[in-house]
Design a protein around this nucleic acid. Structure first.
Lengths: 352, 352
DNA sequence: ACCAAATTTGCAACCGGTTGCAAAATTGAT
DNA sequence: ATCAATTTTGCAACCGGTTGCAAATTTGGT
């Protein structure tokens, strides 16, 4: 007995020294109890007596034991890993998005496994990558990624939520985001309230569903009012350069210019703004602009963008809530959760 | 035999239907081989005959089998999970950093487990969190996080690299970043080259080591030249608001103003710029500014910051390289890798 | 003090893979 | 065709936990 304890102690010492993982068995040995007892001490809701818990916790503390979440996942089937999948690593708003997601998931004891799909085009392949780590669920956070990605996860039997995804009346997967069509209408109304009679849509890439929806909303709202001239064009990307380039192109022909523009997003708006300033145009006196997102920078006084605020905190927390609920109820009927946006009036549209 | 095959088929069907995980055993059963054979087929470097591989791969394909990386980690001791730890979710440069890290890790078959330490102050606790997932290594990516965090991981026996961390002559852990003291000197030289004789240091939070080091470099370089007046103050954070507020404070007393400032980072610089513009000061004619980071926005024409470029792509790839090398050689002697910065001349300093 | 009910504990099998070892199969030289 | 050397394969134990079940213990009522 004494012999064995000495051996155990020596072993433990070595473990700590080498940074090796102290296991359940080590703790059981030291506490003089069964491995199940140790396991139960660290599983809440399990039946353990007070003395037992005390003994085990003491031994665990002395050895610096921490349960191995991955090993337990083998039997429980839960890794508490959530795939956080995005291709949006250039829009500053996504830094806030990642911040909110990581904090929100952490608070619920979940861990985000970050996946960058920037140069990935094959949904199957990305599913394979993520599946290897048997995540409990997946959040696809992107407005530019094809819905096929989210669908691929669903088909693989992995709970999935598409954040910032496209709203459809009968979604195949859970979608949380905004109503881009309504945003388009909202922008149109905001411009018309300013008295503009010649307005432009300066969208993001034409292939993005968000661009298409905003375009639809914008044009239908304009069409409801007579005597408003509508122009439109699309930038190559949701980026500063694309916005600047497209506006520069428009500026080449004065007759092609509208009085005010609804731009694809804030970054693109700043690009357009830059082009206008360079051409000697005053904003909002000569040309008005309204963006979309209300990213942190938009309120910076020397940028001061009028824009449509997207409630990202709510979108994120709702997405997390939804993916968590799916852990219990995997076949939950897909729903679309849309949050209302609002116009934030700053310096790129005139005060009415 | 026929019976058994039918049973197997039925089972498989059910697996696929329910999205259940197809396991090694299922594949072995279907291929009519041992589980080890299947395992070896998916382990490169293992000895398997061509026929065997063919049989197994066929069965695997039919069943949609993918090895469970977490289960294998139990025996191999490798999860291929890398903890990516940061508290820096407000500086746009970190979006690029996350982009680079995720891509770089993915390319090597590693997966980043993102940990947000924004409101965490206890290193022990964060180690516990990460350890549960038995990551193979950890990258602490932050210039504002205490070195204790990185050290805590090292002490727990987890390979760790501190990216964007402080350079010391005898580092306790691997550090990859820039020489902030040298950056301070560089900024001082840039300002003096412009002919300024009254310069200011407008640092980030005084508690950050990066601020301290830049201050040291800046002042020592100034001191090497006679007749240069030096002023200094610190903003409350590396943020727009902090930069704007601090500059606004300085502007209250004209005699407190220097001719040009070296600001803590680019975001802070834009804040200072905003305050100056609001006060009717022209930049660079009335006041010069130089920032640090060269974030993407700095080159936007309507921001156009003169700044010190930090080679983040190199810092990131070097960090990854280092953490990967530590997987093989855990006790590798800690080294500091510093990358040279350079001044990028744009519109916030006069052309000499 | 006694006994039935309720609680706690340990055994052993299992989760999905890996791996050392020995048996079986293949190869190649004679 | 024979046999030793080499390669391939399967067995069984193991990685670090969990859990159903039955044995052991505690509880509480009389």
């Amino acid at each position: 007995m004494h012999e064995q304890r000495a051996e155990t102690a020596r072993l433990n010492l070595r473990c700590v020294w080498a940074g090796m993982n102290v296991t359940l068995k080590d703790v059981a040995l030291r506490a003089g109890v069964s491995r199940s007892a140790v396991s139960r001490t660290f599983t809440d809701g399990a039946s353990v007596s007070a003395k037992m818990r005390q003994k085990v916790e003491r031994a665990a503390r002395e050895l610096g034991y921490h349960p191995n979440a991955l090993a337990s996942s083998l039997t429980t089937g839960r890794t508490k890993l959530i795939g956080l999948i995005s291709n949006n690593f250039h829009n500053p708003i996504f830094l806030q998005v990642f911040d909110l997601f990581t904090r929100g998931l952490q608070e619920r004891g979940l861990r985000p496994l970050l996946v960058n799909l920037s140069d990935e085009t094959d949904p199957e392949k990305s599913v394979r990558m993520v599946r290897q780590y048997s995540v409990d669920g997946v959040i696809v956070a992107s407005s530019t990624l094809s819905p096929d990605f989210a669908k691929a996860f669903k088909e693989a039997g992995i709970p999935v939520v598409h954040s910032f995804g496209r709203h459809t009346t009968s979604p195949k997967v859970h979608v949380v985001g905004i109503d881009n069509v309504e945003c388009g209408r909202m922008a149109a109304r905001a411009l018309m309230e300013c008295g503009y009679t010649d307005v432009g849509f300066l969208g993001g890439p034409e292939s993005a569903t968000s661009t298409q929806d905003r375009y639809t909303g914008f044009t239908t709202e304009i069409a409801r009012h007579s005597g408003i001239k509508l122009r439109y064009s699309f930038a190559k990307a949701y980026s500063f350069d694309a916005g600047r380039d497209e506006m520069t192109r428009l500026l080449k022909d004065q007759s092609a210019m509208a009085q005010a523009y609804f731009c694809g997003d804030d970054v693109l708006t700043i690009g357009a703004l830059s082009a206008l300033q360079k051409a000697g145009k005053k904003v909002p006196d000569d040309v008005g602009l309204i963006g979309l997102n209300d990213m942190e920078m938009a309120r910076w006084e020397n940028i001061d963008l009028t824009t449509i605020h997207q409630p990202i905190a709510q979108i994120v927390s709702s997405s997390i809530e939804l993916v968590v609920s799916m852990l219990e109820e995997p076949d939950r009927y897909p729903e679309a959760r849309l949050f209302p946006c609002r116009v934030v009036r700053r310096g790129t549209l005139p005060i009415v």
